[in-house]
Design a protein around this nucleic acid. Structure first.
Lengths: 271, 271
DNA sequence: CGATGTGTTGACCGGGTTCAAACAATGTGG
DNA sequence: CCACATTGTTTGAACCCGGTCAACACATCG
């Protein structure tokens, strides 16, 4: 069965194999709010702004990638930023001994490559997790255009700030949520990312192994597996028939309840 | 004994009570490198760039703060950014139930307030931990000037990217270091921040309670206390006579060794 | 068929949280 | 000045979550 059909079944979206993009068939279920995030969710149109703005005002290249392809590697010299036009990407931090840890997930409309700006070379790698496409935008060109088109600068700064805020919330979650809740929150954030982009949120395909999820959530694959099993037993999620990477979320509210019921760590009051 | 004198003793710096700034008496011990950071340390002059550039090109206000004063609060509308001209600040994330968690520490030359850019209102609070001063810079004015002075935009983007990279490394550390190592790494990073600003690194005054440190490192105050006690027993650090918040670090190399000897968590290889 | 990669489950153990008690530093009011 | 309260710090003891190790199921691929 071709992948495109699977996508359609899974996310209720039409997958165009030529452009490697998917468009929603059903209006997304809006109103999702992050459980722990202090930052209100961005307006749904936000992720689109970067793409349309860049398209209008900047010369850019297109680069298609297959699963496991790297947009850039740790150590590469920095001179261009990348804007995800389709697909799903992760940032991995490569330790000196060669082992890797996932440090972030990025979807359509997100930028990649900021980490190279201050030092001039990339401090981590960006890896495609499926078919995908990025627009390559030279940093100096972007700066020049930003000076003339205020909106470009605004969007760029907003995108960076949003990443900062998102990282901050992620840090808090990882510090204050127990294993089960972390996994549940991970699914919830994934659903939110889909919702913001107009896709169905009740069915999710994880393009990650348990080990990868564990790397991202700072826990072992065994714990991830156990957490998912427990959630399935509680009926919060369901595994699709074959393949344990397709997950149905019957009720998002039940998922958020599950997060809260998985007793959080005490957050000691400060001062 | 006035606070200024204490500062001089502690950090080998002259503290000017009028400007509330300190200037190094002794050239700093350079060459400090982060243990886990994949991002090479910024050049020592980096923190200065923001300050000099803003001073030259932008109108800005000065705002002095005492310990526990808030630069901005969670929920405040966003329209200005803040540049730390002196002092030490922390970012706290206020949970819906009112409890707070420290999410970051910021020193002279660091920017505050980015989190308000995408949403137009602040998602966290910035709190002074001691006497300090920030320069207030209106965001729209900054954007206007950035368009005309490329260097201002470069520095702004570099500062934001540096925060992103720093957050990423912090996340990794918190996920991969054990309690003792986390506390040691915390001290090391503090020393680095002082070193980058030309201050002595062998003596550190923590303007934080154990509970605050624990909040920042995502662990209980008991664990922080135990870790510090262990480090003191090993001779890696020494407490100053009175008051357990003044810490001497006889040998920074010993501190890094201590971090590595505190067995790290296994980082599972990905893919 | 074996080899390999992935996912699940069980048993065990250890580090860090939790709970509790005691002490130190500081301030307050009589 | 002392009694007292408050806050911060230290240390001990018990518990428990999640890491570790191991065994096994299952799929794909050569």
């Amino acid at each position: 069965m071709p992948r495109a059909v699977k996508w359609e079944t899974l996310h209720g979206a039409r997958y165009d194999t030529r452009s490697r993009d998917f468009t929603a068939l059903t209006p997304c279920s809006a109103g999702l709010q992050p459980r722990t995030g202090m930052v209100p969710a961005l307006p749904q149109s936000f992720w689109r702004e970067s793409l349309t703005l860049i398209e209008q005002h900047l010369p850019f290249g297109r680069r298609k990638l297959c699963a496991q392809d790297r947009v850039y590697r740790c150590g590469d010299p920095f001179d261009t930023l990348y804007l995800i036009s389709s697909g799903l990407f992760k940032i991995v931090n490569t330790a000196p001994d060669g082992r890797e840890q996932a440090a972030g997930l990025y979807f359509k409309g997100d930028w990649l490559g900021f980490d190279g700006i201050p030092t001039g070379s990339h401090g981590c790698s960006a890896v495609a997790m499926d078919l995908g496409e990025v627009w390559t935008i030279r940093y100096d060109a972007l700066l020049r255009v930003s000076a003339n088109v205020p909106m470009v600068m605004r969007v760029l700064l907003a995108a960076m700030s949003a990443q900062l805020a998102h990282n901050r919330d992620t840090m808090l979650n990882m510090g204050s949520l127990r294993a089960d809740a972390r996994v549940a929150d991970f699914l919830l954030q994934w659903a939110q990312a889909l919702a913001e982009r107009g896709l169905r949120t009740d069915q999710i395909r994880l393009y990650m192994t348990r080990a990868e999820i564990g790397s991202y959530l700072r826990m072992t694959m065994e714990s991830v597996s156990r957490a998912l099993s427990r959630m399935a037993r509680c009926g919060v999620i369901e595994f699709n028939e074959a393949g344990r990477r397709d997950i149905r979320i019957p009720d998002l509210a039940a998922l958020t309840d599950f997060i809260q019921s998985s007793t959080e760590l005490e957050t000691s009051p400060v001062q």
